[in-house]
Structure formats: structure tokens, C-alpha cells
Design a protein around this nucleic acid. Structure first.
Lengths: 235, 235
DNA sequence: CGGGGGGTTGAGATGTCTCAAGGGGTGTGG
DNA sequence: CCACACCCCTTGAGACATCTCAACCCCCCG
């Protein structure tokens, strides 16, 4: 059994990669859980009991750490968006506690994989171990790319990269290679996007408006249509 | 055999955690390699043959990805600094290729752990598997915290957090708990620090100068003395 | 019908970048 | 042994992107 991750997929894309899968567990009848929009799948600091694979719906993960300045608000940021087939909770393995909150952006269903059985399973099945390591490694790369983006790109490029990545992840879950999703419905607010990209929500809004004025995208609230991919990629 | 990572260590610190260890391999006589200052331990795109634990010296890891704008320079950033006892190369597990360059900041020695024997070893020894997972998870957290820092903190806080983290990592490798390292010698240039923190080197230099003027640190080129920890932490 | 959340847009404040100049090391070749 | 080149660092001044504050709109929901 080979890991289901395409080894070239991550290297191929220019924009930061934002998804992680864990499909080898499909065969095992793990229980599922439904989370309503706005509710937390888990919270920061909670003991790590399970990791989760999104079956349907969408989550954001939010990290907080106390401001260096005690009396001011703590730093907080959306560290990722997670769609179907992607795995949540792996950041908690090191401390045994979740390192972020996971909030459902819409009603969602997850498959629950208890950590207690994960490690023994991986010792049993080489392919599963390999895939788990690959997933965690991909998470490292994903986080590093986010840092890279936050450290080096201007607002315009961040938003463009975000949209392209979003579209690409939709592709990955639908139809055959080559037909690209151009109509997106963003499940998150401008504030979420801004937090994720290290921008204020006003900046996100303005940037989207500008991209529309320039003809790169169509925009109607949370509906986004990618009109000119090249313009998004090369600018 | 218990994993040697203190499960609370990472949760305790406020500033982004930046180190990762892998000590269970101590018992195994892995070969070592010396890398001269400025030379690469590995380069981006190279097939992943081994992961490495720093024995002595210091490395930076540098990630690059092509600019969305073809003709302009590609985005590049220092994604981490790695000192003794810390493990390098795990980001490459997902693609089978290294996702960054690792450059020695001074003459350094690493222990080489071939990936081919790592996975079988982990299936054999539960504790080793657990520690490998913990290390990778810690890397995810580390990268996420870096992203958090780049996304939310102003220059002053970034530099302060960088210095505090640096000092803390020195502590971790010396003497008993409680006696804190206050005299640092930075092995990297201002440009490296800036790249890592998402700032220009001039901004780093100005910020350090300002911290000195305010009495928070002593400054003499790459020698930094932490004079007022509180001032660095709470502002 | 009123309230609140989400979104857009404007104008001024501000932090960081950019460009530019100069100083101090260090290594190398004359 | 000196001279030069090169790298690293510092500092200044103006440009510029993003933030901040504020007003307003729309839509949904109670």
C-alpha cells in the first residue's frame, strides 16, 4: 500500500500548500462527530485525545499566545483553513495538548482517530506510518510557507495566493485533473482571511475590490470568480 | 524508555519555540559529518537521504519559492536557526526532497540518520516512534508560531522575542534550570535575522539600537547582553 | 422595525521600506 | 606591511503600504 499523497503535488505548486490528507484510515471504521457552525471541535490547552479528518464542511484553526505586553490583548491568528480530507490536531502531538482552537465555519462532520491507537497502528502497518509522517511533514512545509508568505509578500500577492490556493484545493477534491474551479464561495469572513494573511480586514476588502476593478476576479460578497488566472499568478 | 522531551517545556514559553531535539538516537552509532561555515548541509530539491542532528555549531535553513511575478526575484526567507541537539531535514519527509537549504553559520558537526532506517527503527521501538512524532509535531508548532509572529507583531516585539528565544535556547543546553544566559553572541548577520523576522536588515539594526538606547540590552556588534529582561518581555 | 454582524470605502496616522552615505572590520595581493 | 576590496553594520531622510478610525450600507434575524 502506497501513501496516497502524490509526492510531486507539493513541489509543483507555487503558492503555499495548505492541505493535508490521511486516507489510509479509510478502511477502519472510526466514529464520526458533527460540529455546528461556530462551535469548537477542540480548544487550545485541552488534552489531546484524538486527531480528526474532515469528512464534510470546513474549519479554521486559531492560535493564541499571550502578548509580550501583559495588559494588552494577546496575539491571535488564524493559522489554517481545513476542508474535506484534511487532518486536524497533529500540532498537539508534541505537548499532548491542543495548540490551537478548531472552529467550524459551517456545519461539519469529522472522523475521530484516537491518538492512543494511532501509534500502535503505525507500528503495525508501514504504509500507515509512512503516511502519518508524510502528513506531519507536509504540515511543517505548509506552516513554513505561510510564514514565508507573511514575511515576504505584499498584501496583493497574499490575497491572490490565498484565492489560488483555495481554488486549487477545490480542484483536488472534484473531477479530473485539468478542469479548474473558478467559482469559489468563501466560507470565512474577511476578518478570518485577514487574520490568516497577517492583514487587517479592511486591507483584505480593499485588495479584493482592487483585483475586481482590474478584472482579475469577479466579486460578490463571498462569491469569488477567478476571471484571469494569469493576472493573479503574475502580479 | 520515555521520550526525552519535557512535555511541558513548549507550553511554558511565551515566545515562539524554535528548537527540536532527537536524543533517543544517542545510543546508535550514527556517522557524523563536518560542514564548514557558509557551506550547505543539503540543498532544496535534493533527494532526502537523511535527517541530521546538530552536534556542534549552528545552521540556518533557507526556503525559496518562485515569485508569483516570474521576472522578479523569487521570494526567499530564513525559516529557522538550528543549534546543538536540534534536528534538521524533517520537512522533506513529505515530498522525499529537501524543502529548504541548510547552511552552516559556523563550522559544525552533524549526526547523520538515514531516513531508510528511521522508519523501521520506529516500528521496532515505540519510544523512538513517539519521539519522532513529537519532534515533528513540535516543528509544526514552531513554524506556526513563527507565522503568528510574522502576522501579528511589530518589529520591536519580533526582535525582542527573537533575543529572548535565543537566550532561552542557550539555557536549555547549559547548566541547571534557573541560571539564565544573558550574554549572547549572535552567529548570524542582521540580514539573516531580518529575513527570519520578515524585516529589512536596516530595521533590525535600528530596532536593536533603540533597545540599547532604552537600556533593555547591551549591544556591541554581534555581542548582545540582556540587561532588562522585563523590558524585553513586556513591551 | 430595530439591532447586530459583515462588508465597503475614505482620510489621515504611522511603521517599515527604500535609497543613500559612511564607518569599521578582515582577508588578500601587491 | 600596507592598500584595497568586500562584507557587515549603522544612521538618516523621504516614499509608501498598511493600519487606524470612522462613516455608511446591506442583509439577516429576532
Amino acid at each position: 500500500m502506497e501513501p496516497s499523497i502524490d509526492p510531486g503535488a507539493s513541489a509543483r505548486r507555487a503558492a503555499p500548500t495548505l492541505h493535508v490528507r490521511f486516507s489510509d484510515a479509510d478502511a477502519i471504521p472510526f466514529p464520526t462527530r458533527t460540529v455546528e457552525r461556530g462551535d469548537a471541535l477542540y480548544c487550545m490547552g485541552e488534552p489531546l485525545r484524538s486527531v480528526y479528518t474532515v469528512q464534510s464542511g470546513c474549519f479554521k484553526t486559531v492560535a493564541t499566545f499571550p502578548s509580550s505586553n501583559d495588559d494588552s490583548a494577546p496575539h491571535t491568528q488564524v493559522t489554517g483553513f481545513h476542508f474535506a480530507d484534511e487532518t486536524l490536531g497533529l500540532d498537539g502531538v508534541c505537548t499532548g495538548r491542543h495548540e490551537s482552537d478548531a472552529i467550524a465555519l459551517e456545519s461539519s462532520v469529522v472522523r475521530i482517530m484516537p491518538v492512543g491507537i494511532l501509534e500502535p497502528l503505525c507500528r503495525e502497518y508501514a504504509a500507515m506510518q509512512h503516511e502519518l509522517l508524510a502528513i506531519m511533514s507536509a504540515e511543517i512545509v505548509r506552516a513554513s510557507r505561510l510564514a514565508l508568505m507573511l514575511g515576504t509578500m505584499p498584501a496583493r500577492e497574499r490575497v491572490a495566493a490565498f484565492l489560488l490556493d483555495f481554488a486549487e484545493r477545490l480542484d483536488a477534491r472534484s473531477a479530473s485533473v485539468g478542469d479548474q474551479a473558478n467559482d469559489l464561495i468563501l466560507p470565512m469572513t474577511r476578518a478570518d482571511i485577514g487574520s490568516y494573511l497577517g492583514l487587517e480586514l479592511e486591507t483584505v476588502s480593499r485588495t479584493l475590490s482592487k483585483l475586481q476593478r482590474e478584472g482579475a476576479i469577479g466579486l460578490n460578497g463571498r462569491q469569488v470568480r477567478i476571471v484571469d488566472r494569469t493576472m493573479l499568478e503574475h502580479h
